[in-house]
Amino acid sequence: MAPSTPPVSSRAPRSDGADTRARLLLAALRLFSERGFAQTPVRAIAQAAGTNVAAIAYHFGDKAGLYTATFHELLGSSHALIPHFSAPGLGLEEALRRYFEGFLEPLKHDDLGRQSLRLHMRELLEPTHVWPEVLERECRAPHQALARVLCRHLGVRRLDAEVHSLAFSIASLVMQMWTQRDALEAIAPALARPAAVNAWTRRLTGYALAMVQAEALRRQIVRPAARKRQKAPT
């Protein structure tokens, strides 16, 4: 999830259109994250946004369209980060720094970040029409992009199980920051503040570099040993 400007509607905007759309998205994010898709009536969203049900139809088509928009418009999309951290020619450290910078940016928006996490966790437990797109665009595509970056810097021609494991391990550093916010606040409050996100970006980049270096060393050790076993007389 990365900050992005909500896309402009193809329809002619009303004078208060942008503000109404934003209020609907904020109200929908809060209510959907608390109640889930099925248990959130459109009238409740419209009331919380200070508008009417017709505004939902005008801006999003229907409840399903509004629900989909809450995943992508307020804090952006993980898919949109891919060109940022996987651009050709980036050094490994810069690629990893951009990766963490993008995925941790929503934590600077504390309330929105919490609600977005709840929404994603609820979607994981109670899948809706959005789940296939979330799985593909928000999970599989960024993972594959990170894995390709790792392959390039490890000198690996084909994506193998070890590179997948490394990519998942690096991504888990982000997930820990997202899912353990309450624990972090209770144990080390200063590290949970939005102002600490930039420091976390630098720190996690260093941790991830060490993980990649460890994998590179492991491959240097394992490959010669495997070749020796293959050449050993039977």
Rank of each mutant, 00 (worst) to 15 (best):
A196I: 05
R157I: 04
P224Q: 06
A232S: 11
A27M: 07
A38N: 04
R218S: 14
R30N: 13
A80G: 14
L209K: 11
G155S: 09
G89I: 05
H143K: 13
Q230H: 09
V134I: 15
E162K: 02
L154P: 13
P83M: 10
A48T: 05
A44P: 03
H129P: 01
V174E: 01
I56T: 04
C151G: 07
S15Q: 09
L66P: 08
H59C: 05
E34F: 05
G91L: 10
T128P: 07
L146S: 06
H129T: 08
E34H: 12
P132L: 02
R14N: 01
E93K: 09
H143C: 09
D19F: 01
R140T: 12
E34I: 00
G91P: 00
A27G: 14
L104K: 05
K108D: 00
P41W: 11
E73N: 04
W178I: 05
A44M: 14
M211Q: 15
L104D: 01
F71R: 08
A64C: 04
A38S: 13
L107H: 00
S165L: 13
F85I: 10
A48Y: 05
F32P: 03
L66T: 07
R118Q: 15
A49F: 06
R114K: 10
G102C: 13
F37W: 12
A69C: 02
E73V: 00
A95K: 03
A2Y: 08
L191V: 02
D16P: 02
G206C: 07
A214P: 00
T20M: 04
S169P: 03
D19Q: 13
L26V: 08
P106M: 10
